[in-house]
């Protein structure tokens, strides 16, 4: 019997409410508003209250996929990563670094955004880095 709550930040809008994820025996079973958070002060909207619901939804990806002909097929991490590196480096060699680009994510963390732009700027050598959140 294990129950704990994990203090984190709502993943939906930019308000950034404090939420607690309720974890019962290793499974997220609910969301509570953080009572002493200065922004939401123990309140949430409907999205916040159901922030845990998509975690185990059908269709969550659990394995890398690599295209074989028309189909995306499950692959190992090594295979997927090697393929990504090989193709990106080939294209860079053939067409130059500015033939590659990335869309970073307004849903991912600061650390992840930092890493992706670092890959494209420092390793690939292009400033073709943007995000879709002008939208």
């Amino acid at each position: 019997m294990e129950y704990q709550t994990v203090r984190t930040t709502c993943t939906y809008c930019g308000t950034g409410c404090g939420v607690l994820l309720e974890v019962l025996d290793g499974e997220v079973v609910g969301t509570l508003p953080q009572k002493d958070h200065p922004i939401n002060e123990g309140k949430l909207c409907i999205k916040g209250w159901s922030a845990h619901e998509f975690i185990y939804a059908d269709g969550r990806l659990t394995k890398p996929l690599v295209r074989k002909g028309d189909k995306l097929e499950e692959a190992s991490w090594d295979e997927a990563l090697d393929f990504v590196a090989k193709r990106l480096l080939e294209l860079k060699k053939k067409n130059g670094p500015d033939s590659l680009g990335c869309f970073s994510s307004a849903k991912c963390t600061n650390e992840e955004n930092y890493l992706l732009q670092k890959i494209f700027r420092a390793v690939i050598g292009t400033n073709n880095v943007d995000h879709c959140a002008r939208l």
Binding site: C13, G14, G16, S104, S105, A106, N110, H131, A133, L135
Partner: peptide
Amino acid sequence: GQNNVQGSTDM
């Protein structure tokens, strides 16, 4: 709009 638009632009 999205939770980390601010952060992704900062980064």
